[in-house]
Write a protein that binds this DNA or RNA. Structure first.
Lengths: 213, 213
DNA sequence: CCAAACGGATAGCGTGACTATCCGTAACCG
DNA sequence: CGGTTACGGATAGTCACGCTATCCGTTTGG
């Protein structure tokens, strides 16, 4: 397969593919001459994955590079997914020490209920701290009561997730499925949540609900 | 409250607040003179909400404007939340008719199981169609089996969500809580899902898991 | 009464994700 | 064998977005 075919099959412009090659998102083709290369099915596959991570997952170019490098290195998935979903997580931690301690106590309570052991410095725990502080700062502390339920439900999701990939034959397939299932799975779950909210809202409030989530 | 105080309280630079005023994300203060204005607690509250939607929710300026206008109009929440989370949803629908029909059939199956009645043209249904096609196109169809489970779990989440806001005293509080709970709630749930995956993965595969989601 | 702050308008900036052009070489077609 | 086309690779330019900096005339407050 040559560049033009790769472009036609994937729908990605040639100039963009070249850009991805430069940035290391897609591996180079095999050179048959100093200025001619052959691409294979794996290149097309990788290109599709990159586009999905960029467009659906909303990752940055840099984050996608980290993910595909981790895939190629067969890195443990929880390391490989230490990547933020396009702005869903707070980067600056500008919360004061009192707020941090308060949030951390809530999270520790939830973890104890679920028998989770939290890793020190886990980026998702840090995100949760910022998120809980944001809820409080916005004056919506009454919503904090839902998070233990969310945690219970997250456990159920994780179980389903692991069962879906645990029986795959090769480590490579497991790693890529883990990435796809996690990052694209977020989007699927969010869409289903919105639909379920609409349904529940209509059921509770009638056809024209005042609120849904 | 004047501009400087609004800026100091929120941590948002004055020039940025002026930009938000221009873009209609924050309402103008009450003019006491042709070039002097007073801001109140509601302006600070709105400013914090705008920042949370931008930074945590990852919404664009335009999406935030749509959301706050809908809040001010007391729009039904399911309309008001017809806004994409920072790239989680596919904008272009470039899937062919056969793929669309295939995905739609899967979604209808899931909806039937959950007794959902899908609205025609629902943006989240469209998103799901694109997402399912992406899974298939990426060669991860084996992951499709998890989505009925996700739907069941989404129902549980929606129930928790509605209970959390159903007993608020005023419609205004319900609407803002719905927005905050939904958009920031997505981020909370995703963080909890990652943590639960790490926990389940360690439990299943030992300390260095090959995959987690 | 005057320095500092104000509201409002306009123009500029930095980043990120492409996109267009150019170059010299190689492949394909008759 | 000659010419058109496509190729890989490098470089520079473009565009949208989210601010940010400057200027202006007015007004506040010590």
């Amino acid at each position: 397969m040559r560049m033009a075919e790769l472009s036609a099959e994937s729908g990605v412009p040639v100039a963009t593919i070249k850009y991805y090659l430069r940035e290391g998102l897609v591996p180079s083709g095999e050179l048959t001459s100093p200025n001619q290369a052959q691409y294979q099915a794996k290149h097309l596959q990788r290109l599709k994955l990159v586009r999905a991570l960029l467009e659906v997952g909303g990752l940055s170019i840099v984050d996608v590079r980290d993910v595909v490098r981790a895939i190629d290195d067969r890195a443990p998935t929880h390391e490989l997914l230490g990547v933020a979903q396009h702005g869903l997580f707070v980067r600056k931690n500008e919360v004061d020490e009192e707020s941090r301690a308060w949030a951390r106590a809530l999270i520790d309570d939830i973890a104890a209920q679920r028998q989770w052991t939290l890793e020190e410095g886990d980026p998702y725990v840090k995100s949760l701290v910022s998120l809980l502080c944001t809820f409080r700062d916005l004056g919506h502390s009454h919503l904090l009561g839902i998070f233990p339920h969310y945690a219970e439900i997250a456990d159920a999701v994780a179980l389903v997730d692991l069962e879906a990939i645990g029986d795959l034959p090769t480590a490579e397939q497991m790693v890529e499925s883990a990435v796809v299932g996690t990052i694209l799975g977020d989007a699927v779950f969010i869409a289903l949540r919105r639909i379920a909210q609409q349904f529940a809202s209509r059921k509770m409030f009638g056809e024209d609900p005042p609120a849904a989530g």
